[in-house]
């Protein structure tokens, strides 16, 4: 989303490495994450600024999802997509999600209780399209190609945050219908929880978001 003074507000969801060293896992194999948010003029400067106050160097090689808010997507994503495509760390199979709320809200609400590995969680919500058909596994290279193609347009995974006051005591996935939308309950099970749903597609014309396709 747009920051107060700068053009962008970039949020990084980072696994906490110290939680894992004792367990022998890598930093991406963590359920404990921290979200850092930076107001900046571009994605590149956001990464640089993040590196200046995070005690470790950010490595985007294990970045699984890029979440872009609808507000930015409507004004054009070409610059962001080109920047990230040119970044040697970011892999082309990283998923692109267009969030109906801010990217920070999406990231802060995307907590899984049944998948302990954060990176795996993002991988699963995109690849679940293989057996649900509610969205498509769209990657950064697909979006880049879509923007630059002369005979097709880009699309991205559509994601949103939904509120639920329902208390869930067990850890099973509940398919609730809230305001006409099917959502997978992935939130906090013991109290009022925020949840994300990843259903539908965001459709672009050139690099601007023009339509949202849901699964109904």
């Amino acid at each position: 989303m747009y920051g107060d003074q700068d053009e962008l507000r970039v949020s990084f969801q980072i696994s906490i490495p110290s939680q894992n060293t004792s367990e022998g896992g890598s930093s991406s194999d963590s359920n404990d994450t921290v979200i850092d948010t930076i107001d900046c003029s571009s994605v590149e400067s956001g990464i640089s600024l993040a590196n200046s106050f995070v005690s470790k160097k950010l490595n985007l090689a294990h970045c699984k999802a890029i979440v872009i808010s609808e507000e930015i997507a409507e004004s054009g994503v070409a610059e962001i997509v080109y920047t990230l495509t040119n970044n040697i760390d970011v892999r082309p199979d990283c998923n692109v999600i267009i969030s109906r709320s801010t990217a920070y809200d999406f990231l802060s609400n995307s907590k899984s209780e049944i998948e302990s590995i954060t990176a795996k969680y993002y991988e699963i919500i995109a690849s679940s399209s293989r057996y649900t058909g509610y969205t498509s596994n769209i990657t950064l290279s697909d979006v880049f190609n879509g923007i630059d193609d002369t005979f097709g347009e880009a699309s991205a995974i559509l994601g949103s945050v939904t509120e639920s006051n329902k208390s869930v005591q067990d850890l099973s996935i509940n398919n609730d219908t809230i305001s006409g939308e099917t959502t997978a309950n992935l939130g906090d099970s013991s109290q009022a929880s925020s949840k994300i749903d990843v259903v539908g597609l965001a459709v672009f014309k050139n690099d601007r978001l023009v339509r949202r396709i849901n699964c109904y």
Binding site: Y82, T85, N86, P92, F144, N145, D148, D149, T150
Partner: peptide, 16 residues
């Protein structure tokens, strides 16, 4: 694979 490879490739194209 790439619509405009020249715009993205600052590194080994085969590595991409």
């Amino acid at each position: 694979l790439f619509p405009s490879i020249t715009e993205i490739s600052n590194t080994l194209s085969i590595y991409i």
